[in-house]
Amino acid sequence: MFWGRVFLIVGVLFLGSCKKKSELAESDPAFLVTAVKAIQKDAPLYLEAIGHVESIERIKVMSRVEGELTGVYFKEGDYVKKGDLLFTIDPRPYEAKLKFAEGTLAENLANLKLAQEKVLRYTTLVQEEYYSEIDYRQLQTTAETDDALVKKAEADVEDAKINLNYCWIYSPIEGKTGILQIDKGNLVRANDQNELITINQISPIYVTFALSEKFLPTVQKYQCKNPNLPVNVSYEDFKEDTFKGFLEVVDNQVDPETGMIKFRGKFDNEDKKLWPGLFVRTRLILDTIKDAILIPSEAVDYTQNGSIVYVVNKDKTVDKRNVKLGQRIDDQIIIISGVEKNEMVVTDGMLNLYSGAKVQLQKTEKENEPL
């Protein structure tokens, strides 16, 4: 009887203990987390670098003649077309030089005509020995000298015309003017090192960037499929202000000091937002990855055993999974294996998580942000 009571008491205590443990387990608090769905869509395969925006043509406008700057026919920062008048240099000294050269030419032409007439007149007399051979040769020499003077005078006239035309300076390209380096009324020197103005061609425009030589075979491989590989550039974020162009040139040598090779993309730049001298994020698009799985990059935890993510199950517990990562695209990353489309991955609150841990979704986004 005594032992029966003892066993009864022990049994009651045991059942009570099990009940308390069960209640404690059920009452374990869930971890507050944020999760989003993995999405499946086409994603670009690209190489990224820092690019430098450069004008296709950059012209320093200088004067070829010396004189007073008498006219400026644009405002600083204006867009000008090829052939637009930019400056005038005082033409009066060069007009005078042209008139002088033309007068000298006329004088030499008159002398040549007279000398040729004398040679013609005395030719018969020399043949009939009525005129000295020596004097006749002197007449011929005079005619030849006058002919040479005429040619020299013609060259002087042509040179004077060229210099006179240089008094009107026209834009050699279409582009945007910069800051004027000399004001109207100042003396301009011929071929001075200081330009009058610099004109940059804005549209189209180049972006030059460099990649490691190890990527050259990869680029060449994809160029065989598409010679004009797309090139995209952006100031900072490719989600805004993305400019699209194409690869125009791959340099013909690798820099032996840096092991880098230069690439150059060409952009229409019709809206003129790309500015010479800018540094921009540049992506050389090699191909498109079909039906790629993407998740936010903050969902990936990097450990000594590899990259892991926490996937939320339907029962609000999580699985700790190893994943194989692909290319990172802005704030997203491609998952090669380990996560399937529409599975929920934890992006915030995973510090103390473990496999089987209960979670409470603090914020759930229906879909990951698109590319």
Rank of each mutant, 00 (worst) to 15 (best):
G178D: 09
V231W: 01
I335F: 01
Q253L: 11
L105W: 03
K152I: 13
S132M: 03
T70V: 15
Q332Y: 13
I162P: 03
T177A: 04
E57Q: 06
L125K: 02
V72P: 14
S22V: 06
V280M: 09
Y206P: 00
P256C: 02
Q40T: 12
I335E: 12
K341Q: 08
F14D: 05
Y170G: 13
V309D: 09
V119W: 07
L286E: 00
E144N: 11
I295T: 03
L15P: 06
N228F: 12
Y131N: 00
I89M: 07
S132A: 03
P227I: 08
A190D: 10
F100T: 15
I205D: 04
I39N: 08
L139K: 07
E257M: 04
K82T: 13
N352Q: 13
A115C: 09
V119K: 14
K60M: 01
L120H: 10
V219R: 01
I205Q: 03
L278D: 08
T124R: 08
Y206T: 00
T104M: 12
F31L: 01
I261E: 15
A357G: 06
P276W: 08
D331K: 07
E68C: 01
L274R: 06
V157E: 01
G11I: 13
E107C: 13
Y94A: 05
I199G: 07
I134G: 03
P172K: 00
E195A: 15
F243Y: 14
D135C: 13
P256W: 05
E76K: 00
E174G: 14
V231L: 10
P370V: 03
F243G: 05
P256D: 03
N228C: 05
P370H: 06
V126Q: 02
K358E: 01
V250A: 10
Y170P: 09
Q362D: 12
F263K: 00
E48D: 11
N165Y: 15
L139E: 07
A190L: 11
V323R: 05
I202M: 15
K113S: 09
G338Q: 07
G11A: 10
R283W: 11
D301S: 15
E298Y: 02
R137S: 08
L278M: 09
K19T: 15
L351M: 12
T347P: 12
I59V: 08
K366C: 15
K272A: 12
L139S: 11
L114M: 04
T177V: 06
L45H: 10
C224V: 15
A160E: 10
F74A: 07
Y302H: 13
A143L: 05
Y94C: 04
E298D: 13
D271K: 10
A115S: 15
G245Q: 04
V36E: 07
